[in-house]
Design a protein around this nucleic acid. Structure first.
Length: 271
DNA sequence: TGAATTGTTATCGT
DNA sequence: AACGATAACAATTC
């Protein structure tokens, strides 16, 4: 559930408390989700200093002072929290990091789908991720190329992390609405105007969501207020904010999908 | 109780 | 063979 804006928010929030700190202990109560293995990861990171905290796609990247990297993927229900003195531990703690200043970082994950991965080679570990949609190199021409290379339905293609990195179900639905495009349009059917609009829509919705610190979703992700600004996601039956037509819920590629049937009427767009 | 939830990967079909 | 669609899976909440 945490997508690019939520992960970016977490990274920005945790960065000042993590960068410069040394890891003095690492434990996991769910060794299955630690790669390559829990003992190997512990050996590699304990004693190392964190030199930077960054994001790649939906991965949180701890850069360490010996060149190694620890990647954390939250998947559906993962969270990072700080242990608080005197308070009971939160539920579903799966892993913990103790730092040299006494802080303890917790990885909580009700559904245990999250992953922790140690690697010495960040480039190799992230080799099959597509471009970052907010980086300079992500131009309309680049997006057009990615779309026209394939003949897939638009929504599954946008969700594919090897095509574009960081979009999930919420922001894909929002971007398609903003661009006025139906999620099942074939990717190679878009004209230049469609592509330009989709490019703008993806960047606009991600930047807005980051400004809002992400979308708070029941017990999964707290803290953001983008849910107030969503135009289609989770609004089935409610009136489209643009035209008043009730938002419709569909199932596309096994994913809950939300559209305005009037505003997202296919390829032929005015302008 | 079972439906819903999502990113990734394995598998099936064209 | 390569690609795209689909199924399966992880495990929990409500």
């Amino acid at each position: 559930m945490p997508e690019l804006p939520e992960v970016e928010t977490i990274v920005r929030t945790c960065r000042p408390r993590l960068v410069g700190r040394r890891i003095v202990a690492f434990h996991s109560r769910w060794r299955k989700n630690v790669a390559p293995t829990l003992p190997a990861a512990r050996r590699a990171i304990v004693g190392r200093r964190i030199t930077a905290l960054t994001r790649r796609a939906k991965f949180i990247v701890f850069r360490l002072d010996d060149g190694g990297c620890l990647l954390v993927h939250l998947r559906m229900s993962g969270r990072l929290e700080w242990a608080k003195n005197g308070l009971p531990e939160p539920r579903h703690v799966r892993a913990t990091w103790d730092l040299d200043d006494g802080q303890r970082l917790l990885f909580c994950d009700a559904r245990k789908f999250g992953r922790i991965l140690y690697t010495r080679d960040l480039a190799a570990a992230t080799a099959d991720l597509g471009p970052e949609p907010l980086e300079r190199g992500f131009t309309p021409a680049k997006l057009g190329h990615l779309l026209q290379q394939r003949r897939r339905q638009l929504k599954p293609l946008l969700l594919d992390q090897s095509v574009i990195a960081g979009l999930g179900n919420i922001y894909t639905d929002e971007a398609l609405f903003l661009a006025g495009l139906h999620p099942t349009i074939r990717s190679d059917a878009l004209n230049e105007t469609n592509i330009r609009r989709l490019h703008q829509a993806i960047r606009d919705v991600l930047r807005l969501a980051i400004r809002q610190h992400g979308t708070s979703l029941d017990w999964i992700y707290p803290g953001g207020w983008m849910q107030e600004r969503l135009l289609v996601y989770g609004r089935a039956g409610e009136p489209c904010r643009r035209c008043g037509t009730p938002i419709v819920a569909l199932r596309i590629a096994q994913r809950g999908t939300h559209i305005c049937p009037r505003c997202q009427n296919g390829v032929a767009q005015r302008g």
